[in-house]
């Protein structure tokens, strides 16, 4: 089995299990139809609705790989959405609106990255500042109301379709592929991992960790900006109070379900976006199954708990060993082969 597939195998199996579980409660979960030039069906809704968290998870994976964390992405979404809606409703057109939103996201990342890399503030504290203040900034831009607009070009990013697929889904898949290529076809990924494992040693080895850290937070802001654009285009309005609210936590959860360590080091963007899809499949599944809404959070928490326990360092290797024993592979030889890899 290729290394890349083996890395995301637990996440793929989990996603499959969640899909099967939801299908047991809602049999039509996997049904996909082609209507009015686009694919429709619950599973399509999952990849569309999961776009903001998947995008945030791409940026969050890189930040977490450097042993950091970015709590401000939800607020950054609100700021970027507000900027875009302001630009559109002031009549600046599509391209300036996107440019303003992306610039705001990069600026938010620059702010976070500077606090972390230059001033040495702990990431959780540094990004907490923007998490708290950012929503206020967004409210200042929207003047405290839901800033609505009518612009079909911009609304396309929320509800349009490209080759039958929802535009938000295409955006997050492209972002995940581009960022993966960027960090894996160059040495960037390796350098990010080395900063996460030991920043001091990396710096002494000649890595410009300061610039790289700032760049990583800016990448997270860039992803948050796209998430904000999608969320704003989706409802054709910037809701500063609610856009991206608590999504930073879902993004961190997606990264963790993706098997990435919060202590930094090795990372997989593909596994993180699969984590985001697992979370969204649970969310959509709960809505489709028709349970009373009081159960939503309890069911989600229980499923997440099960997933994390199955992936935990003390349980997962034991289960893998048990599986091998059943297949009849001598444990010792497998261990030796693993050590040799």
């Amino acid at each position: 089995m290729p290394q890349a597939i083996r890395r995301v195998l637990p996440q793929l199996l989990t996603l499959l299990a969640v899909i099967l579980l939801v299908s047991a409660f809602f049999p039509g979960f996997l049904q996909v139809d082609y209507e009015r030039g686009r694919l429709v069906g619950p599973i399509i809704d999952v990849i569309k609705r999961g776009a903001p968290v998947a995008l945030l998870a791409v940026g969050m994976t890189l930040v977490i790989a450097t042993r950091g964390i970015d709590l401000s992405v939800g607020a950054t979404m609100a700021i970027c959405g507000a900027c875009a809606a302001w630009a559109i409703s002031s009549g600046y057109g599509l391209i300036p609106a996107l440019a303003v939103a992306l610039a705001a996201g990069l600026l938010a990342g620059l702010w976070n990255g500077t606090l972390v890399a230059v001033f040495g503030i702990q990431p959780i504290v540094a990004t907490l500042i923007l998490m708290t203040a950012g929503r206020g900034v967004a409210q200042l831009i929207t003047e405290g109301r839901i800033l609505t607009f009518t612009h079909d070009g911009f609304a396309f990013f929320g509800s349009g379709a490209i080759l039958g697929l929802p535009a938000p889904a295409v955006i997050w898949v492209l972002a995940a592929i581009l960022f993966t290529l960027l960090v894996r076809r160059t040495a960037l990924g390796l350098l990010i991992e080395s900063i996460g494992i030991n920043r001091r040693a990396s710096t002494l080895a000649g890595i410009n960790s300061r610039v790289l850290l700032i760049a990583v937070y800016m990448a997270s802001g860039f992803c948050a900006a796209w998430a904000g654009i999608i969320a704003t285009a989706d409802i054709r309005g910037a809701d500063a109070n609610n856009s991206g609210l608590w999504l930073e936590l879902d993004a961190i959860l997606a990264v963790v379900i993706g098997g990435n360590s919060l202590l930094g080091g090795r990372f997989s963007i593909a596994a993180s976006v699969l984590g985001a899809m697992i979370i969204q499949a649970i969310d959509t599944g709960i809505l489709l199954a028709g349970f009373p809404s009081e159960f939503n959070l309890v069911i989600k928490a229980a499923l997440v708990l099960v997933i994390l326990v199955l992936q935990s360092p003390s349980l997962a290797p034991r289960m893998a060993r048990a599986a091998r024993r059943r297949r009849g592979t001598p444990v010792g030889r497998t261990a030796a082969r693993e050590a040799g890899e």
Binding site: P42, D45, N242
Partner: peptide, 17 residues
């Protein structure tokens, strides 16, 4: 959750169901 996004997402699932 009293929000536009929430209303839209839940309505999509109602329509599917």
């Amino acid at each position: 959750d009293f929000t536009r996004t929430g209303g839209k997402e839940v309505m999509e699932s109602f329509l599917q169901a």
